[in-house]
Design a protein around this nucleic acid. Structure first.
Lengths: 258, 258
DNA sequence: CTTCAGGTCTGACGTTACGTCAGAGTCAAG
DNA sequence: CTTGACTCTGACGTAACGTCAGACCTGAAG
């Protein structure tokens, strides 16, 4: 009989397919979806076949593919369809892990924020601390054994922003003192240096609680320092400082861990 | 003694804090982080205090806040810190659900794509089908009881893209026939109409498997049709078609479900 | 003193997927 | 003929920088 070629004007087509008219213009310009016809006046006329194509586009957009790739897939045959799907999944999974970390950090921050009263001169600082702390714990997790992780989580119950601030402060001070000692040409075996070592091991104990498993994880963590994300804690702590302490430890009788 | 006011040049400051020089320029222009001083030549000179501020910025960026909001938080006191955290968390959680759906869809698509051989004239179509199918199942989940969901998952094992294509095709054909019957002024009680009803109930049975719980969920789903996402399946299916079938069901003795 | 490598500055355009005007033409109805 | 409702194209805006490009600064080597 007759071809029931229904033609839709922009808005009709748009509402029927759930996109906006402007998006249709966009896809048109990109060559992603050109209407099968144009009216004399230049109006876009979409057919039912266009619906199918748009459907594909929308679906591929749903899984997060950029329009350029979508074009490659629906226009020509992209031999790499399977590879593309896989890459996209891995990419999304990575982002998801990232978001999980962010969400956990915020949740932790909300708890301490609830605790603070008044406006927030100090609240912000605490929130920042907690977010970084949570993120760091999340991030360093990979270096610890299951057992060590459990123990850390256990010890984490007695943690709070104030303590964190104090400890950070102590590390900064210690690092500064070590640098000063080095600048003064202090002997790694001397009494001065040994006192610094004592403060150092004391601070480390504050974190490990003297636990060997935690200490082992900490060593692995430090060994991989070149891969640390740049943003973390870090109170001026550098290679030379660490080297000095190690030397001082060796020359002293202190045989504590690295 | 003397103020140990260490000053960093752009690159030094950037590498030390893990951001790029260009990002520093950007934050400067936005008024988010202006270096405490400038050299005679106009070079940016960052101090240790700037480090602290940048640290805050980076941390807030980590939880996904836009720079504008970050500015509000670190510059003035944003009384809404707690509210901001909460909103941001909810937003991220929403996005995460969205991503989870996409990931599950891709995973399902990868399976069928593995199955297909050669290039992909047909593969794309299958992949699209599977993605939509998975997404729809994910989406419609909310309407079904736990028990119904289990049963659906059970029945889903005998599902495949070809079947899906065939069923979609049958629905389209049926809807077209119903429309034709209505246009012809067919009597809802007539034999023609009753045959249409039979086809209809048959197709519904194909999905429900005759299960009452699934049927109940399906009814809830349909009742909420005004909230359906525009993109889904939908073979031309509209209000008038449904009304005709309901009337035909009522006038016939067919007492099957709605 | 000149040159050269390497770092810095500002300004402008590119990116992603459209949203939001703005000015102008189209179309059916009153 | 005038509305009102659409449509079209072009241009600018968005977020957070990346990437030149052209010009300037600085310290060291020749």
């Amino acid at each position: 009989m007759e071809t029931p070629e229904r033609l839709y004007l922009a808005r009709a087509f748009a509402t029927r397919t759930g996109v906006t008219v402007r998006a249709l213009h966009h896809y048109d310009r990109l060559g992603l979806l050109k209407p099968s016809r144009r009216s004399e006046a230049g109006y876009r006329l979409y057919s039912d076949r266009d619906i199918a194509r748009l459907q594909q586009i929308v679906t591929l957009k749903f899984i997060g593919l950029p329009l350029k790739q979508i074009k490659g897939i629906v226009s020509a045959r992209s031999i790499h369809l399977i590879a593309t799907l896989r890459r996209q999944r891995l990419l999304l999974e990575e982002r998801r892990r990232q978001m999980d970390r962010a969400i956990r950090s915020i949740a932790a921050a909300e708890k301490v924020a609830q605790g603070t009263v008044g406006p927030d001169p100090e609240a912000l600082r605490k929130v920042i601390q907690v977010i970084e702390m949570t993120n760091n714990m999340d991030w360093t997790k990979q270096y610890y054994s299951e057992a060590a992780q459990a123990k850390i989580a256990d010890r984490a119950t007695l943690w709070n922003p104030e303590l964190q601030a104090a400890v950070t402060q102590q590390w900064s001070a210690l690092v500064a003192d070590v640098k000063a000692a080095m600048a003064a040409g202090e002997d790694p075996g001397g009494r001065q240096a040994q006192q610094l070592v004592a403060r150092w091991t004391e601070l480390v104990r504050g974190f490990t609680g003297g636990d060997a498993e935690i200490q082992a994880g900490l060593n692995k963590l430090y060994a991989d320092r070149k891969n640390w994300p740049k943003v973390s804690f870090d109170p001026g702590f550098d290679e030379t400082v660490h080297a000095f302490i190690v030397k001082a430890m060796a020359s002293g009788k202190t045989s504590a861990a690295e």
